[in-house]
Each structure stands twice: as structure tokens, then as C-alpha cells.
Amino acid sequence: MADEEVLKAVFPFLDGKDLASCMVVSKQWRDIARDDYLWKCLCARRWPSFCKRPNPPTVTYYKLYQTFNKRQHRRTLLPPRLSFDDLEFFIDIWSEDKLIFSEVVAGPVLQNGMMADLSCDLEVREYKMTIPVEPRFTVTWSQTVSVSVLVVRKDSNRVACIINKSRFEYIDRTARRAHAFEYLDFSPDHPFTSGIRGWISLCFMEDGDEGVLDVFGIEMDFCDAANSKEEVLWLLDMLDWK
């Protein structure tokens, strides 16, 4: 079977994000992945009633999917009332009941580690704050590893909880990340804000010993809702500060 026939057989099984990623591999892949029939099938799975209209849309189904799947252009935010200079983050990690990492991280240090991960065609940006782990530590697949993260406002000495002894239960060996999360507690001043998670991830390399993870970094993000420095600060300001 020719390469083109293989691609045409595989591409219909991909979701929109993966199909868009295929478009940057090569010109051949892009030409095949832009076939509007593939994007019509994706639209039909996502919005089946819309695709039953007798008159097709005036734009391509690819453009339709791209428009309604990507994040809309964000309005310019007012300057946040917080700054990273005002904050300190307290990160503690346990393996079973043994403390294996405990660090106070100044806000500017975490801010300087902020990186953007861009998924090209659908323009989905995720901002992750990163710090290196020094010295490194190792854990095994079989161990129960958990994490807590508190944040302190230096201007008022008030404390908020971001993550409270959550387990690293989601391990992505391809991305070399182990993930834990907690739903954030917001101030009663924001009664309709809920369902937003704080994520923390261990960045690891697999050690020579099977099942051993050599942890070299920590990532934190709020990509459920915040995808820029300003958005992160606004989100933190809404937490239930004690």
C-alpha cells in the first residue's frame, strides 16, 4: 500500500488536535490532512445537528472546526493586583510517609521558569511554571508519591492552599511527566467560580533500573483557566486566603 493510501486510511481515526499536528510534518501530510471531508467528519462527531443543515457552511469545515475549537481572542486584562514579587510557594513532596523534597520557592523564581507550549495549528497555548530539582531524587513506579503546595502573600502574610497532599496518579511516559491535581478553593467573594484545577507535574528521566524515575524538575500550571502570567495572578488573587 502506498504511503498516501496509508495516511488516508489512518487520518479519519484521529481527533482534531492530532490531525492538525500532522499538517506540519510535511507538504504531503498537510495536503492530505487538509481534505475537508476529514474535517466534516470531525465536525459531524462534535456538532452532528449542525452538519445536518441542507445548506453547507460558507467556510470550509476545517475553518469551522478551527474557529470554534480554538480559544477565542482574549480581551486585555486590567493589571493584576498581585505580583510574583508578593508571593512565596511552599512545595513538599512525600514518598509514602517519607519527605523527599521540601522547598520554599520565591515568586520571581517560579515566574522566570514560565514556559509556553504551543500546539501549532489550533493555537492552544499552555503556560507552565518550572523549577529544577536540586539535588535530584528518585522514586519507583510502585511508590505512592504525593505533594502539597501552599502560597503565601508577603504583603499580608496570608496563606492559600493550591494542592493538599494529592497523589501523582497520572503518569505520561511519552512526555516523561507524572501529574497530580487539586480543585482550587476560591474566596466566598467569587461564589460562581469552581471546577478549576491546580496541576503539578514531576519531570523525570527513566533510570537504568527498570521502574525507577529520576526526577529533575517540577512544573506547575493552571491551564484549566489561566494561560498567561496576568491570568495566573488574577486566579491566585481569587483564592480563599486565610
Rank of each mutant, 00 (worst) to 15 (best):
M1D: 08
M1K: 04
D3P: 00
E5H: 07
V6F: 06
L7W: 12
K8Y: 04
A9G: 13
K17Y: 13
K17H: 11
K17E: 12
D18K: 00
L19Q: 04
L19E: 08
A20Y: 07
C22G: 06
V24C: 07
K27S: 13
Q28K: 11
I32A: 11
A33I: 01
R34E: 12
C41I: 01
C43P: 05
R46A: 09
W47R: 04
W47L: 09
F50P: 00
C51D: 03
P54H: 10
P56S: 10
P57M: 03
T58G: 04
Y62C: 06
Y65L: 11
Y65D: 10
K70V: 02
K70R: 15
R71C: 04
R75A: 14
L77H: 03
L82Q: 06
E88Q: 15
F89E: 07
F90Q: 14
D92T: 15
S95W: 03
E96A: 07
K98G: 02
K98N: 14
S102N: 14
V104D: 05
G107M: 09
P108R: 07
P108D: 11
L110D: 07
M114G: 12
M114T: 15
L118D: 11
C120F: 15
D121Q: 10
D121A: 08
V124K: 08
K128N: 11
I131L: 08
P132H: 03
E134Y: 02
E134M: 09
V139I: 15
T140M: 12
Q143A: 13
T144Y: 04
V151A: 05
R153K: 13
N157L: 14
R158L: 11
N164A: 12
N164L: 07
R167F: 05
E169T: 15
Y170F: 11
R173W: 12
T174Q: 01
H179W: 07
H179L: 14
H179V: 13
E182P: 05
Y183Q: 13
D185W: 08
D185F: 07
H190Y: 15
P191A: 06
S194W: 01
S194N: 11
G195Y: 05
R197H: 09
G198C: 15
S201M: 08
C203N: 12
F204A: 04
M205I: 00
M205N: 14
D214E: 13
V215N: 05
F216Y: 15
M220H: 00
D221W: 01
C223N: 09
A226T: 00
L239P: 02
W241N: 04
W241Q: 09
K242H: 10
